[in-house]
Design a protein around this nucleic acid. Structure first.
Lengths: 213, 213
DNA sequence: TATATTTGTCACCTACTAGTGACCTTTTTA
DNA sequence: TAAAAAGGTCACTAGTAGGTGACAAATATA
């Protein structure tokens, strides 16, 4: 039994595992999840595919480990929730969603994982969705609900459509046409149109809360 | 050369072509587009795969022909545009989008084609997207623009988010979790929450047009 | 009826897939 | 230093993919 890990030598299990995980990331960004074949991954990692079975137990386990080591949400949501929120999270949520719109646009790997989640049943992907839900629920419980009261359900519906909408719009940008409702989603002006719409919707939703209170 | 088609006999080219096209539809609904393999399609159609190459030229052409023969949009949009629109299309668009939300939910084949369109580059799928755009553009030009004037761009943004949102929400229903922003998209109450949000957004958007005019 | 054409089936090829046993090499340990 | 353990490579199996040539059966045409 070894007591310390060897990090300098050429033969290194942990380093090799990372190579496989990196290869998965590269392939998913370039070819999509349908390109995730053992032979392909091994070739990309420049290692023998046998090691995938030895280190991870198989292709499925490797993919699951890849999904679990991802940490997209912490980069987007709740990375820096301000300590004092006095407007029911209006400025925070507006900023968060418009930034997320751009984040998803430029992060191809995240896009592919989203698409993967829509396409294939996989426990690790389901877990990812649940974690996202849990992270969002914190926001609803502590910031939205206190401010919106009975209108929280309306807020949930609006938020669901906006989040789902910005996901889909960015996914549809990549293939089979970049125009959606006459808006060019790859152009600066087009993307600003979407951001303006997000701001408008949130504005009106927060106004509604003011009126009802 | 034959002058009349044989429709009664067991050996019939046109009937066989239809069998293949039907098989494609069945497979895409059950297994998704990744299940569209020649052997699988032929088995489903209960015919030899050789005929796919003879009648369509290959798998790709068969799939293209399948996509082109689909006519999802006419069932949804513009199927019965009222002759007189006096409210800038408010009731019409609201009805159309909430109905489309349910239509996409129950039509698994349509869902799979949407997902296919996000996943694979394919001329026939791109053409489908363009036709959808063209159909929507009619609405914007003749009904929305006259009523919204300079606010038409805002309307486009709102519409894009709503349409994209209802697509994504229905796609996410199928795999890896049915809860989105705390809303159960398979429950009656959850789906009504989304519909209420759609109505609210359109309401506010049309109000905005009133104020500015 | 004899011939040509079309419809359909089967066997086979090549390429690629996931997965594994045998083996060699490097590193660690006794 | 000798033995054991771990890291890594290669060759092979079995299954499945797309695609095609040869052939049989049914239908149309002369």
């Amino acid at each position: 039994m070894k007591e310390e890990k060897n990090t300098t030598s050429l033969r290194n299990k942990e380093e090799s595992k990372k190579k496989f995980l990196r290869a998965v990331g590269q392939i998913i960004t370039t070819k999509g999840f349908s390109g995730l074949k053992v032979n392909h991954i091994a070739a990309k990692a420049k290692l023998d595919k046998k090691l995938i079975y030895r280190y991870f137990g198989g292709l499925n386990q490797l993919l699951d480990e890849y999904v679990q080591q991802q940490d997209f949400w912490s980069n987007v949501k709740g990375n820096k929730v301000p300590e004092t929120i006095d407007d029911g999270g209006k400025t925070f949520v507006t900023k968060m969603l418009t930034e997320q719109f751009d984040y998803v646009f430029q992060n191809k790997e995240f896009q592919k994982v989203l698409l993967w989640r829509l396409s294939e049943e996989r426990p690790s992907l389901q877990k990812l969705a649940e974690e996202q839900e849990k992270s969002g629920e914190m926001l609803f419980e502590h910031i939205i609900a206190p401010h919106f009261g009975e209108l929280t359900n309306l807020y949930r519906g609006i938020a669901a459509i906006i989040v789902a909408g910005l996901y889909y719009l960015n996914l549809s940008t990549e293939v089979n046409g970049t125009i959606f409702c006459g808006i060019d989603l790859t152009s600066e002006t087009g993307r600003n149109q979407i951001k303006d719409a997000i701001k408008f919707m949130l504005e009106k939703t927060y106004n509604e809360a003011q009126i009802t209170r």
